[in-house]
Design a protein around this nucleic acid. Sequence first.
DNA 1: ACTAAACATGTAAATAGTTACATGTTATAT
DNA 2: ATATAACATGTAACTATTTACATGTTTAGT
Lengths: 181, 181
Amino acid sequence: MRVLKYAILGLLEQEKQTGYDIAAAFKGALGQFWSAKHSQIYPELKKLVAEGLIEFETVIQGEKLEKKLYSLTVAGEAELKEWMQRLEAVDVSHKDEFMLKTFFISSMEKEEAKELFSNQLDSRKRKLDELGRILTELEAEFGSNIVFSSPEFGHYLVLTRAIEREKGYIQWLERSLQFME
Amino acid sequence: MRVLKYAILGLLEQEKQTGYDIAAAFKGALGQFWSAKHSQIYPELKKLVAEGLIEFETVIQGEKLEKKLYSLTVAGEAELKEWMQRLEAVDVSHKDEFMLKTFFISSMEKEEAKELFSNQLDSRKRKLDELGRILTELEAEFGSNIVFSSPEFGHYLVLTRAIEREKGYIQWLERSLQFME
DNA sequence: ACTAAACATGTAAATAGTTACATGTTATAT
DNA sequence: ATATAACATGTAACTATTTACATGTTTAGT
């Protein structure tokens, strides 16, 4: 499927940037739904250059640090657009190791299961707090007038989705814990 | 992490079964959160036998079809238990290609974006219907008295989680579409 | 001046997962 | 009888991803 290819094309469409910047982007809100390590990014960038979808200019940072600023070619823009418009089927298995354990819950003692769920609940709550803080920052910077045409609309949508996903998970964990009483 | 290893151990703890049965299990509710193809399952089974975590007896089906019924060894049971009790950190990136596209939504025309979201909404609604039917079947078979000690409690929890996940996704899609008006 | 964190780029080796190749048996419906 | 779907097991090749190895520069704080 080469999804990383499109992730990179999409990021470069927003802004000229280095491989390092791309790796950093995956550490933000985007990383909730897609990410890759630099060891995967650099070879992919090389491949995309070879395919003529992106190009780069070498820029000197400070005295001698050479960094590569990548940008989309016309062909790259076309490929990105084609992928964006594709209507793909919903993929089934969003892998989740915790839910795999849950499936096997009958092999556990009730107290063990409760501990497992409580611990997961704590982690999810902490993550929700963190996401809430990021949203607050975004709203502080752009106000509540983020609409379709705003460049940060995508960021906003992804954040709200991540937050609601956590909320849903938390509710389910709480109800499941009650169920175990 | 070798999660497939634990998926197999967990399934074998519930019941003696063949590689084919394991592949079939991933096509049910469990498959919403973990799955693997038979081409990954068979080599993993071989590896687990070599490690002494599972063993098999060859059974003749009909005239000459040899099938291998796998079961847990004592060591396998211990490994499964150890994994079940592990309190692991929530992993960040649950990869979702649609959300990746969403992040890049500002590169689209509004009408294109609406089509993308409407299409996703339809798929999600169809999936929700399907999951609802499976839950109805489960409740028809076991009634609403599925409690912690029931062997189908894990199945029930996983199904309810899958259903609520879809509901949350659908709500977010609907609100996002309204936002685009 | 010095140090630590952040910036910056790569490769190698291993593991995980998918698609394609390959084969044969058994049960069910017509 | 016969065809089809389901049962059953494997390997090969490729793609995707992670962990580890490897190196060097720049910026910001003390």
